[in-house]
Simulated scan of single mutants.
Amino acid sequence: MLRLRQESTYPVGMARSHLTLAALATSAVPGLDLVKAASFGTGANNDYDSAVLTDRAGAHFIVRAPRSVRAETEQAADLAALRALSAGVRTRLPFAVSTFVGDTRATVGKDAAGKTRYTRAMVYEFLYGAKVPLLDLDTTQAASIGRAIAAIHSLPTSFVSDASLPVLTAIEALRACITVLDRAANTGLVPGELLARWEGATEESKLWQFQPAVVNGGLTASSFLFSEGAVSGVLGWHELHVGDPARDLFWLLGTRGEHVAEAGFDAYNDLRGSADRQVRQRSMLYAELEIAKWLLHGTDTRNTEIVDDAVAMLNRLLDNVRNNVMNPIGPLVSPTMEVTEVEEMLNRSGRAI
């Protein structure tokens, strides 16, 4: 799914220093004895002010304070998901997940009425590992990602429903796609051949005969931390729900290297077996509909630059589809088309890859 940046409803203001964040962390975690603090992340362009902290025993922590309403909402959802991922659930995963340590109130400035507005600064145990950009992933790393995603999808769905997180059926996943398709068609800007391709996929019943699974819901290349070539941690759980497994996999189709995407899907299928024979085909549909979502974002915000960009991407996608007529989105078909434009679009929209 496309996560688009939205304007905050309060002034972001100046970025907090690492020393300010360290002070917030000591307020959030009583007894935390810090000896070092350093800025973490990309600074003013980030949705969060972040710092990495070291305590006297040598343990490391991350403290984050949101800089926008969107980030504030995301952080709250992430915390709810982390709490749902109990110790017992985490033992089933071959990688580490963030552990929440504490939080405290932090000011974000004043609203239009001059009233001081607050958010929450949160402290987590530090997860070790390095990120690898999407276009730099190799087959070994992609295979490890495939296995990590398979482990998530193999978790029992009961803990998600018990935490009152969303539980979506296959029919609801299909309806969501149809809604995007219909809205995009109403713009009059989507080529007819693409609309026919997408409509054909939504009408192919075999594609939608899958068992909903636990899905992260917001995975990109930047979600994964690597150590010695294998996934060591997974970040960002704010969209945790039960739904279509393809939602966690479609972004792999934007990889550049030969056979990289295939390595990820093959490793995934090796662990999941025949649980979902059509997961790659639905992934292709989701990847293509990301461009439709970008178009809708442009029309919704009346941003002609985004609309023009999306139209150009749709035309390039149409050319690719025409050059791959033997690979429609359908059952028992393994498309080989790489949708690298999706990665470019996601970067433009502010979603990190």
Rank of each mutant, 00 (worst) to 15 (best):
P166D: 05
F224I: 03
V234W: 00
A261R: 00
D49V: 05
T157P: 09
D244T: 00
S154K: 09
F224D: 01
D248Q: 05
H241A: 11
A163I: 07
N347V: 10
G188E: 02
V260R: 03
L296R: 00
T104D: 07
R282K: 08
V234Q: 01
E193G: 04
E74H: 11
D270F: 13
E288M: 12
D276E: 04
G114A: 09
A310L: 06
G233F: 00
N327R: 06
L194A: 00
A263R: 02
H297S: 12
R105Q: 06
E228C: 08
R92N: 11
D55M: 06
G192S: 11
T116I: 15
M14H: 09
N323C: 06
S274Q: 15
L24M: 10
A28I: 03
V167L: 05
A44V: 10
E7K: 07
Y268G: 02
P166C: 03
A230F: 06
T202Y: 04
N269G: 11
G13M: 07
A22S: 10
A106R: 02
G109N: 04
V123W: 09
V339W: 11
D182V: 09
L314I: 08
I171H: 15
V325L: 13
F159D: 09
A176P: 01
A87E: 14
R16D: 10
Q6M: 11
D103C: 10
K36F: 14
L181H: 12
N320L: 15
N347S: 11
E74F: 05
G146T: 02
A230K: 15
K110W: 06
N269A: 14
D47P: 00
H238S: 14
A170Y: 03
E125G: 11
V69F: 07
A292F: 13
